[in-house]
Design a protein around this nucleic acid. Structure first.
Lengths: 130, 130
DNA sequence: TGAATTACTATACAATAGTATACTAGTATT
DNA sequence: AATACTAGTATACTATTGTATAGTAATTCA
């Protein structure tokens, strides 16, 4: 048995607060609409109807629900302007803007992974033709 | 209107392959069991029953399903040993091991975000007592 | 007065994700 | 011959997530 099990050197310490932290992050970015919604607010704050125009397929129910969740999680800030008619704007909090760092890493991994798989498939095809 | 909309400077280029890359990454880490399963394989390859022992609450159906998906996505490698009884081992591929880089970023963001929110709540509590 | 805009909510339903429980084929042990 | 271990599969169910469609209150415009 022992000869067929390889140990990898790059093992990291992993405690409970790390697991909670990863879960917090996943909560902010997983689901069908959270990332598209966050994306609309990267440049500037947006109103409800403007987000709807930029994400035409989202229903108002989902947009309302996701914005409420993101606000509860401290990622989105909702601002009510005392004008007539009342204007409501949604923007990213400090953390919300920093989520781009995580997304950048995800892009990096994803692109790298795609390339690795393409190479593997090319190798397999090469072997099979010989 | 224009005075109440702030533009953030840190806008990134975003094209279709970036979105695909993020989605690929999310597919690998989202869901209830994928990360726990990957975690068991960080140190060394594992057999089906060993993963079950380390994640007692997972049903064999889910473990089987998730391992199959991870293998299809090129994150997990399944090795069959021609012994009696047959031994099957699951380990991480090169990409699979590198997913830790993404998780590290998620831990970083998550811990930071928790701290920011705690500070905010402390400030609010301070204001309210005055 | 009637239509349009803004920022949603309500209700019902469909689709996906996850659970619970039992079962299987092959081999080895008692 | 009965039991147990390995690596799962099968079936039926519940829970969560997302969709479709209609409606609402307050205000403004023609």
């Amino acid at each position: 048995m022992s000869e067929i099990i390889t140990t990898y050197p790059e093992v990291k310490k992993c405690n409970v607060s790390y697991i909670l932290a990863v879960n917090d992050t996943l909560n902010v970015i997983s689901g069908k609409w959270k990332l598209p919604i966050i994306a609309t607010m990267l440049k500037e704050r947006q109103r409800f109807s403007e987000i709807q125009k930029q994400i035409p397929k989202i229903s108002p129910r989902m947009l309302s629900k996701e914005l409420r969740e993101l606000e509860l999680n401290g990622v989105v800030v909702r601002t009510v302007h005392n004008t007539t008619p009342v204007l409501i704007e949604y923007g990213l909090s400090g953390s919300g803007k920093k989520i781009m760092d995580v997304l950048d890493k995800m892009v990096e991994w994803g692109l790298n992974h795609r390339e690795l798989i393409l190479h593997q498939n090319a190798e397999k095809a090469g072997l099979m033709s010989h």
